[in-house]
Every structure is written in structure tokens, then in C-alpha cells.
């Protein structure tokens, strides 16, 4: 099982190793100045040295991401359930929900700063906005695609609309919901960082901005690495939670792979 997993990601790791190695070589051989393009080893050193400062900034950004994500999840549940239960709500909201995904949410960051200042509120809002749409759309889709025969079965037993919803539709929507939640998890960190770029007193975005304005390029890279790792970690966290609460949905795909 574990050797399988290693074998699956080995090629990707190989490519990554080659790229990083080439990067290291080029910066050394061509003597690229550090402020222009630091080598991977310099970035690692910088990461370790700035860890005491990085940690609180990372904590702040994670807090913003977590609150915004939770808010998005709650709101998405309410909206998706409303769309599912009311035809009028579906016709009124569904097209807006789909088209609103084309709005670059991040471009709203300066507006939110104007309206809500430079505290934590605008960061939470931008995370919530960025995460809301993928979760709401995927959950609404999952509810809509629930097996009509299973719904009929519960109705034939005398089940109410609410029972059809809770016993069939909601569990059926979990796979779709999880994929939306994974996308949203990767958005959450970067959304918080962008919110911080506009103006903040703490957070990875602020730290990155300060580093770049003083040409501490290695530090900028270190922050980028932290953001990437956090995004992947949150994505995997949702995946793990998904496997825990919905083990049945992973069966078919794993069988197909062996």
C-alpha cells in the first residue's frame, strides 16, 4: 500500500529534484546575484534563520484562512440547501452562482480594505468570498445529482422531503462537496495573503511585501514556499477528513487503479 503510493509520486518527485538541481547549478555557475535569484540552498538557510519571525505571521494568516473557510462552508450549506429545496431560489440564485465564479474575487481586496479597514475583517471576508463559490457550486451540484431512485425509495417508505434530504441527498452530495472543499482549501491561504497585501499589521502577505521592498529575495521565496506548503497541507487535510467521514466514496476509484 505505502510502496504503491511512493511509486505513484516518485516520477513527480524526480522531476522536482531535477528542476531544483538545475536551479542550484545555474545560480552558482552563472554567479547570479542573490537579490535577483537566490539559489535553493540560500532560500533554505533564509527559511531556517527567519523561522522565529515567520511563525507568528504564518499563524495569523492561517487564522484568517480558517475563519474565512468556516464562514464560507456555513454560508455555502445554507445557500445550496435553499437552492435545492426551492425551485424559485434555484432559478434566482443558480445562474448568479455559476457566473459569479468568473469574477476575480482577489480584485475586490482593495475595495474591502476601503470598506472594512486594515484589521482582520477584510481578510476573513476575502477568504470567505474566494472559498464560498467552489463549495456552494459543488454542494448544490451534488444535491441535484443525488440518485432519484434512492429518493423515490425513501418516499415510498413514507419519507418527508426533509428525510429525503437528510437520508439521501446530503450523504450523496459528500463526494462532490469534498472536491469543492479541496479547491476552496487551496484558495484560502492565497486569499488571506492577498488580503494582507492591501494592508495589514501581521501575516505572511505583509512579511512578504516587506521582504520584497527591501530586496530580500530569498525571504520572499521562503514565504512563497510556506504558502505553497500550507495550501497543499490544507488540501490533504480535507482529503484525510473526507476519507474518514466518507470511506465508501474512495472504494471504486481505488479498485479501478489496481
Amino acid at each position: 500500500m505505502n510502496t504503491h503510493r511512493v511509486a505513484r509520486i516518485a516520477p513527480a518527485l524526480g522531476v522536482l529534484a531535477v528542476l531544483v538541481g538545475a536551479w542550484e547549478l545555474v545560480t552558482r555557475l552563472a554567479a547570479v546575484p542573490e537579490w535577483l535569484l537566490p539559489s535553493p540552498t540560500v532560500i533554505v538557510v533564509e527559511f531556517v534563520e527567519s523561522l522565529p519571525q515567520l511563525a507568528p505571521h504564518t499563524g495569523r494568516t492561517l487564522l484568517e484562512a480558517a475563519i474565512g473557510y468556516a464562514a464560507a462552508l456555513l454560508l455555502a450549506f445554507a445557500v445550496a440547501a435553499l437552492i435545492d429545496q426551492s425551485g424559485l431560489a434555484r432559478r434566482a440564485l443558480s445562474p448568479l452562482l455559476v457566473t459569479s465564479q468568473t469574477i476575480p474575487i482577489f480584485a475586490l481586496a482593495p475595495l474591502l480594505a476601503i470598506w472594512f479597514g486594515f484589521g482582520i475583517t477584510p481578510k476573513i471576508l476575502i477568504v470567505a468570498l474566494a472559498c464560498f463559490f467552489p463549495i456552494a457550486v459543488s454542494l448544490a451540484g451534488g444535491l441535484r445529482n443525488a440518485d432519484p431512485d434512492m429518493q423515490a425509495l425513501v418516499r415510498s417508505m413514507g419519507g418527508s422531503r426533509r428525510q429525503v434530504f437528510s437520508k439521501v441527498k446530503l450523504p450523496s452530495a459528500i463526494p462532490s462537496l469534498l472536491s469543492g472543499m479541496k479547491i476552496a482549501a487551496t484558495y484560502s491561504v492565497i486569499a488571506a495573503v492577498i488580503g494582507e497585501w492591501v494592508g495589514a499589521s501581521q501575516g505572511l502577505g505583509l512579511y512578504m511585501l516587506r521582504a520584497s521592498s527591501s530586496f530580500q529575495t530569498a525571504r520572499v521565496f521562503a514565504v512563497i514556499a510556506v504558502i505553497a506548503v500550507l495550501s497543499v497541507a490544507l488540501f490533504l487535510a480535507v482529503d484525510v477528513v473526507g476519507r474518514w467521514i466518507a470511506p465508501w466514496i474512495y472504494v471504486r476509484t481505488e479498485e479501478a487503479q489496481t
Binding site: 423515490a152 425509495l153 415510498s156 413514507g158 437520508k167 450523504p171 459528500i174 466518507a246 465508501w248 466514496i249
Partner: peptide, 18 residues
């Protein structure tokens, strides 16, 4: 004639996978 008076077994087993 309301539902729930007969026991209905549809063509597919429709066991809820979860």
C-alpha cells in the same frame, strides 16, 4: 392511497452506500 402502505422493492437494490 398515500405512500407507505405497501413495501416497495425497486429494481435496483438501492442500498445506501454510506
Amino acid at each position: 392511497g398515500t405512500p407507505g402502505q405497501v413495501a416497495y422493492m425497486p429494481q435496483r437494490d438501492l442500498l445506501l452506500p454510506w
